Computed example of a mutant assay.
Amino acid sequence: MKLAFIGIGNVGFSLANNLQKKGHDIIIAHSDPESNSIVNALQKNNHFKVMLPQQAVDASDIVFLAVPFNANEEALQTLQFTGKTLIDCTNPVGSGITHGLESKISGAEKVQEWAKDAEVVKAYTIYGFENLEDSNFSDYNVKPVMLIAGNDSRSKDRVATLNTDLGFETLDVGDLSQSLHLEHMTLLWINIVRANGHHPNFTWAYLEK
């Protein structure tokens, strides 16, 4: 598939690099191809293409949103998605590692407000970028799980396909409003790792019998 990335920092690059190695075409959406983030990304993987944001969206099958949450509205306000899948990889984190929207609404629902003509799916947020770089836990005969939420079943099926490429099992937790609970899982992971010093190379798993 052709995958466009709005944001190519730690999370965006980890996903883009991994998916490019799995055979997907990666397009970075950016208005300045000479920016430091673009130069750094291309130095690490020269298979990426760079296009202006709307051109990147138009050329892609799926769009990843991976900028800091506070930049989401500005990044999305001029773009037209015409029903394309938009994966929200962002989290509204407030001071003291709290929910940045006071848990009144999920960040993903705000993304849907700002990108009304997109089919938003929440994914790739419950872990740090380290587990997007390498999701392999083969020594334990179990795959990590990626929890996703969204209102459009077709879009969630497409994200599930990408999850398989990345080495994750998929658990669909329901409609987009469920993203609030995924964002709380993110805060838990951040508290454990970033605030309290636990190593980042751990994930959740889904066991069923």
Rank of each mutant, 00 (worst) to 15 (best):
L176E: 00
L176T: 04
L176N: 03
S177E: 04
S177W: 00
S177T: 13
Q178H: 13
Q178L: 10
S179G: 15
S179D: 10
L180G: 00
L180T: 02
L180W: 01
L180I: 09
L180D: 02
L180A: 03
H181N: 14
L182N: 02
L182E: 00
L182R: 02
L182M: 11
E183K: 01
E183I: 07
E183G: 01
E183Y: 03
H184G: 04
H184T: 03
H184W: 07
H184E: 08
M185K: 03
M185H: 08
M185L: 15
T186C: 08
T186D: 06
T186L: 03
T186G: 01
L187W: 07
L187T: 03
L187E: 05
L188H: 13
L188S: 09
L188N: 13
L188T: 15
W189Y: 15
W189K: 01
W189D: 00
W189A: 02
W189L: 03
I190V: 15
N191G: 12
N191L: 07
N191D: 14
N191A: 14
N191S: 14
I192F: 06
I192Y: 03
I192T: 08
V193R: 03
V193Q: 05
V193K: 04
V193M: 06
V193W: 02
R194V: 04
A195M: 08
A195W: 05
A195T: 09
A195D: 10
N196P: 00
N196Y: 07
N196C: 05
G197L: 12
G197P: 08
G197D: 12
G197Y: 10
H198N: 11
H198M: 14
H198G: 05
H198A: 15
H199Q: 14
H199G: 07
H199W: 05
H199C: 06
H199N: 11
P200M: 10
P200L: 07
P200F: 06
N201T: 14
N201V: 07
F202M: 12
F202E: 11
T203P: 03
T203A: 13
W204I: 03
W204C: 05
W204P: 01
A205V: 15
A205S: 14
